[in-house]
Every structure is written in C-alpha cells, then in structure tokens.
Write a protein that binds this DNA or RNA. Structure first.
Length: 134
DNA sequence: AAACTGACGTGAT
DNA sequence: CATCACGCCAGTT
C-alpha cells in the first residue's frame, strides 16, 4: 500500500521540506526507544527512563508520552514503567491500572500491598546482571 | 495570556 | 505514613 509518493515532483506542493522532526518528536522517540529496552519481568521508574532517554528530570514527560500509547495501542511495554514509590501511577480504579498490574503479574512481577519492590524487579538494580534475585 | 492539570520526584514537616 | 511545597513542563481551558 503505497500511501504516499516519496518524490512527487512539483505536484505535491510548493515547499517539500524534509520536515525536521520537532524536539517533542525526538523526545518521544528516545523515550519509547528506552522503554522498549526494559526486559520482561523488570520495571523502571519514570525518572529513570527520562534520564536514560536523555531528558533528566523530565519524568512527567515520560508519563505524557506513555499516555499517548493507551489509545494508539503500540507494542511498547509501557506497563513496565512505574513511579519511584514502586506503585502504578495510573488512577487506582481505572481499567488501565488493572491492565498494567495484570501484565506485570503475567511477567512474574509480584505486588506486595499494591507495591513492587524496585530492589528486586528494578531494571539494572539489585544485582546488575542477575536475572532475578528472588 | 494566565490558570489549570497531570502515568513524576524529592525533601521537609 | 500523610501532607505540603516545589521543581519541571507540555498540552488544555
């Protein structure tokens, strides 16, 4: 399905600029790319992702970007991102919240009193390379 | 344009 | 553990 001609001569329009990706697009890409690297069965915090993606101190930005995934369903493991307290940040009684918990549990992540131990399941924490400390 | 609103985090009380 | 105050900042009102 060729939905667009990469090089339609002058028929397309006056200015055919490369359309430089906006800063927000670059950020979104970097963030999603980083989230995609979180191993199954592990979790990462918003601030951690922000930092690794090159936007230290921008935890909220990560949340904003991930929020866009809910509707536009993507294959990004957004459920592996939680807050610094080890809790799911989505509204407690929301469908999305339950979905996130469901997915994490399916990967073996254990919840204790609505919280996840970052020590044990945190990405690149607890023991470096060790799969899981148990 | 100003105010409000968050899938946040951290430090102080 | 619960609140509050900030710092941060993009999208909505």
């Amino acid at each position: 399905m060729a939905r667009r001609r990469p090089d339609s001569p002058a028929a397309a329009g006056p200015r055919e600029q490369p359309l430089a990706p906006s800063e927000s697009d670059l950020a979104r890409r970097a963030i999603l790319d980083t989230v995609a690297r979180i191993p199954s069965g592990r979790v990462a915090t918003y601030s951690q992702i922000a930092w690794l993606a090159g936007y230290p101190g921008r935890a909220r930005l990560v949340g904003r970007v991930l929020g866009g995934l809910l509707e536009a369903g993507a294959n990004t493991p957004w459920h592996r991102v939680i807050n610094a307290a080890g809790q799911i940040s989505l509204p407690t009684f929301s469908e999305a919240h339950r979905e996130q918990k469901r997915r994490l549990r399916a990967e073996g992540v254990v919840f204790a009193n609505e919280r996840v131990s970052l020590r044990r399941y945190g990405w690149q924490a607890g023991g470096g390379e060790s799969p899981l400390i148990d």
